Amino acid sequence: MPSPEQIAKNHWYRNDDLPGVSGPEREIIGYGERPPRIRWDGGAKVAINIVVNYEEGSEKTFAMGDHMNDGMYELPFNVDDQRDLAKESMYEYGSRAGVWRLLRIFDRCQVPATFFAAAVALERNPEVARKLNERGDEVVGHGYRWIDHYEYSREEEKALINLAMDSFQKTLGRQPSGWYCREMSVNTRELLVEDGRFLYDSDYYGDDLPHWTFINGKSHLIVPYSLVTNDCRYIMGTGFAAASDFVEMASRTLDQLLDDGDDCGRMMSIGLHPRITGNPARANGLAEFIRYAQSKKDAVFMRRDAIARKFIEQVPRPATPADRPNR
Rank of each mutant, 00 (worst) to 15 (best):
V111D: 07
Q169F: 02
A164D: 15
E138T: 00
V99S: 00
L75C: 00
R135A: 01
A97L: 10
R145S: 11
E123S: 06
I105D: 11
G98P: 05
A159D: 15
I105F: 05
R130H: 11
D80N: 08
E156S: 02
V139C: 00
F77D: 11
Q110K: 09
T171V: 13
C109Y: 09
E92W: 07
D84W: 12
E92S: 11
S153E: 10
R83D: 05
E138K: 09
L103P: 09
D81H: 12
G98T: 11
Q169S: 10
R130M: 13
L85A: 06
L163Q: 13
E138A: 05
G94Q: 02
A119P: 08
G143N: 11
P76Q: 03
L103F: 14
W146L: 10
N125H: 10
F106C: 06
E151N: 09
V99D: 01
S167G: 14
P112F: 02
A97Y: 13
Y152A: 04
R108Q: 10
D107P: 00
D166P: 05
F77N: 15
Y91C: 01
V128D: 08
L160M: 15
R96H: 08
P126G: 09
E92I: 00
L103K: 05
D81Q: 03
E123M: 13
D166I: 10
P76E: 01
E134L: 02
R108P: 09
D84M: 05
Q110E: 15
M90V: 15
E151V: 07
S89F: 14
K87D: 05
G136D: 13
S167V: 05
W100A: 02
L75R: 12
F168C: 07
V128A: 03
A113E: 09
A121N: 04
A121T: 10
T171A: 11
V140N: 01
G98D: 06
A118Q: 03
I161A: 01
S95E: 09
V79E: 01
D148C: 14
N162I: 12
D84C: 09
L85Q: 02
H142E: 03
L103W: 05
F106Q: 01
Y91H: 10
E155Y: 10
M90E: 13
L103T: 14
R104A: 12
A117N: 04
D137V: 11
Y91L: 07
D137A: 06
V111C: 02
E138N: 06
M165E: 12
E74W: 04
M165W: 03
K131H: 01
G141C: 14
R83L: 05
K170Q: 04
R135C: 08
